[in-house]
Amino acid sequence: MNPLVPTITTPSGVWNPLVWLMVFLLSLIIALIIYMRGEKTRKKGMQAGVFFSGDRPPEGMDAHIAAHNIGWGFMEALRPYYRAMRKMHTGIINDYVGWFLGILAVMLIIFLFWGGA
């Protein structure tokens, strides 16, 4: 294996990052060409503006979405799972040790009765 050859062969195929990079760069160049052939007389300065339902946001309004709002739907959909997870993560040291010793006991039983040797 030549370490400077970027191809890695997996059990199901191959991966070459340089080929991927070349395709990626080619895609960027094509995108740039399409962009440059676009309408030249467009109004500038509007494209990056923030709009709520077609209106500009009121003066002084915070246009930034805070972290706790991102992914709300995902967490809401998994509410029962997250409720159980929050119960597990108590932050109490006794529980940390309890989980450790509990897993130790379970693994001892599993290895002793269902294999290990």
Partner: peptide, 21 residues
């Protein structure tokens, strides 16, 4: 050996941060 192995492996799994430890 089984007991020693379990003690060592579970402890090291805890030390490397494996769930649920």
């Amino acid at each position: 050996d089984m007991i020693a192995m379990t003690l060592i492996l579970v402890t090291l799994a805890m030390k490397c941060g494996a769930v649920p430890m």
